[in-house]
Amino acid sequence: MSGGSGETSDADLVARVARGDRAALRLLFMRHHARVYRFVMRQTGSETMADDVANEVFLEVWRQAARFEGRAQVSTWLLGIARFKALSMLRKRSEEALDEGQAEAVADGADTPEVVTMKDDKASALRRFVDGLSDEHREVVDLAYYHGKSVTEIGDILAVPVATVKTRMFYARKKLGEALKAAGYDRGWP
């Protein structure tokens, strides 16, 4: 999101933030917070972590706005920061026991596709299969379909080569196709 006609662009807002303009940062927050929050929520599965990380991302923008070089879109930059912070937080908490909520989520996700599909139609089955992808695969699917990012931008956010992005997308889509077929739904490929 870089701002439409007559609207201040994201890059201009970042430049204002670099000069200490808090109002510009609030505007940037309003534009991008939901997407950053959802991105982290999908990565971590924790509302608390998504909330903390999303806030931290924008505070980081406040501290580091002068370092934004404008090579990438602001939204790509934000998602890159969010991913790094989410991974750091996940690593830090990896030794902590799963709380009750997380344990329930894991148990829920552990349903076999067949069991789940009995009560779902194709669209809701597909939503569940997208949710059930591995982190690596779900990330590229989310970044392409929901965040509208290009192969190169996803490579920047995940810090991987573009060939890796394509490979992950290939396997992600293949797994979705296989899961749908196994659940008895039509699917042309693979």
């Binding site: 609030r26 929050y37 909330d51 806030n55 669209a123 939503r127 929901y146 889509r173």
Partner: peptide, 27 residues
């Protein structure tokens, strides 16, 4: 169909309503 499913599953996630107020305080 994957596109729609991914959009829906993302948009079902609701950020907290008071996020901006709390962020402004922290800022």
């Amino acid at each position: 169909a994957e596109y729609s499913a991914t959009m829906e599953t993302n948009e079902a996630i609701r950020p907290p309503a008071d996020a901006l107020a709390r962020f402004s305080e922290a800022l």
